[in-house]
Amino acid sequence: MRVLAAMSGGVDSAVASARAVDAGHDVVGVHLALSRMPGTLRTGSRGCCTIEDSMDAQRAASALGIPYYVWDFSARFKEDVVDDFVAEYQAGRTPNPCMRCNERIKFAALLEKALALGFDAVCTGHYASIVTGADGARELHRSAAWAKDQSYVLGVLTAEQLEHAMFPLGATPSKDEVRAEAAARGLTVAQKPDSYDICFIPDGDTRGWLADRVGAEPGSVVERDGTVVGEHEGATGYTVGQRRGLHLGRPAPDGKPRFVLEIRPKDNTVVVGPKEALDVRSMAGSRFTWAGTAPVDPSEPFACDVQIRAHADPVPATARVADGELVIDVDEPLSGVAPGQTAVVYVGTRVLGQCTIDRTVSAVPAAV
């Protein structure tokens, strides 16, 4: 099988590529250049697609004896990930750029080009497993290493994309084992630190980065009943669940801290309230997909677990499709759910599907 190995320059993708070679596949390595301005991406241990990462990937490919190329996806990355990130914040939502990158770059643009060039599959270093279900269709499942499981960020994959995906690390019990294997193979990335945070915000200052691009207009911070309790320096600098940096002029009557409950971009208002008001009992999104075979009748409520962040614990829920939305009702109130986040639905270890959250229903009435 002809396999295109996406090599980020990290240890996971290097070992995944090595395992694809060991399995007898015809493997070609490719690194994605996501910016024509290297200084706009994080470097060292805090990057994922920088020039030094490209060099690390090239050294790994050379050690494995496979061809290696760098593909320029910078224009697509800016449009589908960076511009989307800005637009979501302008709309008062909290986006996850890593989800968009997996969806639109690594498993849309990359896979599309790979298939056009005659490759059969794209191989990555994600910690997730693909299992063939009873109906013969491929299913996405959690990896064996729960602490390193990355099935959440792959929840955006469709059935067609799963047909051409390969995750050689899915059954690996620990990251330490991957590093040990890399060292044994003589790969120089064996001890390279993991990447984290947003790659296109070099200094990690999301508020400042957004202010430079969309401006920062002062506005009111209000309680849920409309009472003005402070002023902000730009609504895009806040996210649901935030506590620090509110600088409120009026303390709450009960003396307890307030948290950001909602961002209202139309009137440039930030809504705050007590921590318990962050609890939601339901969430819904019209932008949903199924990872593999969909439920026979998705309009019929079905039991599941839902996960709303990459490192969050899954919680029991009931889901259904109604009026063009995937509606998810949690068994117990879930705190800090924001529009723009991705809700990934699991049945056991299987990723059933996902939606981008458009709206939530509070578990606490506004009068409280």
Rank of each mutant, 00 (worst) to 15 (best):
M1C: 06
S8K: 08
A14K: 02
V15H: 07
A16L: 08
A18D: 08
A23K: 02
A23Q: 12
V28I: 09
G29H: 06
A33K: 15
L41K: 03
R42I: 05
R42E: 03
T43F: 09
R46S: 11
C48W: 13
C48N: 13
E52C: 04
L64K: 00
G65P: 07
I66Y: 06
F73D: 01
A75C: 01
R76Y: 09
K78M: 11
V82A: 09
A87R: 15
E88S: 13
Y89L: 10
T94G: 02
N96Q: 11
P97Q: 01
C101G: 05
I105N: 01
F107W: 13
L111I: 11
K113Q: 15
G118R: 06
A121V: 10
V122Q: 02
Y127V: 00
S129T: 13
I130V: 15
T132Y: 09
A134Q: 13
L154W: 00
L154F: 01
L157R: 04
E163C: 07
A165R: 05
F167H: 11
L169V: 04
S174V: 05
K175M: 04
D176F: 12
R179H: 10
L187C: 09
V189C: 12
K192A: 01
S195I: 01
A211I: 03
A211D: 11
D212C: 04
V214N: 04
P218R: 09
S220A: 15
V222T: 14
E223T: 12
G226C: 09
T227S: 14
G234T: 08
R243Y: 07
A252C: 09
K266F: 13
N268E: 07
N268F: 08
T269P: 05
V270T: 10
V271Y: 03
V272N: 01
K275I: 08
K275Q: 12
D279F: 07
G285L: 03
R287A: 14
P295N: 07
E300G: 00
F302R: 11
A303F: 06
P314S: 07
G324K: 02
D329P: 01
D331S: 11
P333K: 07
A338H: 05
G340K: 03
G340F: 02
G340H: 05
V347Q: 14
T356K: 08
I357S: 00
I357P: 03
V361R: 13
A363C: 08
P365K: 07
A367S: 13
V368S: 12
